[in-house]
């Protein structure tokens, strides 16, 4: 569904991605794991059209979307819940959800989708008239995912949904992500620093280091890979101080 070939991205002359290639098959959860500065978020930003691609290509459903304006990419069916959640803090929760549906004109379908979102995240329903900035971190993350779903995307990009969130809510959010994939049928590209969690729900994983893909395998194999275990899953990490 989504295919990236030899992607290069740089910010002000400093290269962030040195030729990344990856593939997200329809209906799957694919995860990008790696430490800070590995290029995970840059990859998602490039896909969504908010980081400029210097070379390489991004192909979505057979169509080249490299360096297309961000709003056209949303229209083609790729939505992102960005790093740091980026909810519209002084808009209400309901207005945030409506912003997710910005490009849609089918009013009736929008309200039935809202209902579906409320069964997925009942918390949001209780908070509808509240300004999004007053929500807790976990609630904001739910809102960011819900808002991305409101555009009815074919492919959902999630950037660090566990970042800075109470552990109990992380469990809830990850089980919802699985539900969104298995039951609602969305294809998901998940960026996570918490490799343990990500590899448990993904079918395939890519390990990024300093802008390159260093490992690429099924999630199952990556989980048992000794390098991944020591570097990202926190096992036998005796060599790191």
């Amino acid at each position: 569904m989504l295919e990236i070939r030899n992607l290069h991205v740089s910010y002000g002359g400093i290269a962030a991605l040195h030729g990344i290639s990856l593939e997200v098959p329809a209906g799957s959860i694919v995860t990008l794991i790696g430490g800070n500065g590995a290029g995970k978020s840059s990859t998602l930003r490039a896909i969504s059209g908010i980081a400029k691609v210097s070379s390489g290509s991004i192909v979505f459903e057979g169509r080249d979307i490299t360096n297309k304006p961000a709003h056209e990419i949303v229209a083609l069916g790729i939505a992102q819940a960005p790093e740091g959640r980026m909810v519209f803090s002084n808009l209400t929760v309901l207005e945030n959800l409506h912003m997710g549906a910005h490009l849609r004109r089918d009013r009736n379908a929008i309200s039935s989708d809202l209902e579906r979102i409320f069964t997925l995240f009942p918390r949001l329903k209780e908070r509808l008239p509240q300004a999004a900035g007053t929500l807790s971190g976990g609630e904001q993350q739910m809102l960011a995912i819900a808002r991305a779903l409101m555009s009815k995307p074919k492919c959902l990009l999630l950037d660090e949904p566990s970042l800075g969130i109470a552990p109990i809510l992380v469990q809830t959010i990850f089980s919802r992500i699985v539900e969104i994939n298995r039951e609602l049928g969305y294809t998901i590209l998940l960026v996570e620093q918490n490799a343990n969690l990500a590899l448990r729900i993904a079918s395939h994983g890519y390990v990024l280091e300093t802008g390159r893909v260093v490992l690429n395998d099924t999630a199952e194999n990556l989980r048992s890979n000794p390098t991944v275990r020591s570097a990202y899953l926190g096992e036998g990490a005796s060599d790191t101080a």
Binding site: I50, H71, V74, Q80, L91, M99, L103
Partner: peptide, 24 residues
């Protein structure tokens, strides 16, 4: 209105607004 909402969203967070499909 939809345009007014987009204006407020853009004013609040331009990057997030373009990720929602707002034509800035």
């Amino acid at each position: 209105t939809r345009m007014g909402l987009a204006m407020r969203a853009l004013s609040n967070n331009p990057t997030a607004a373009s990720l929602m499909g707002v034509n800035t």
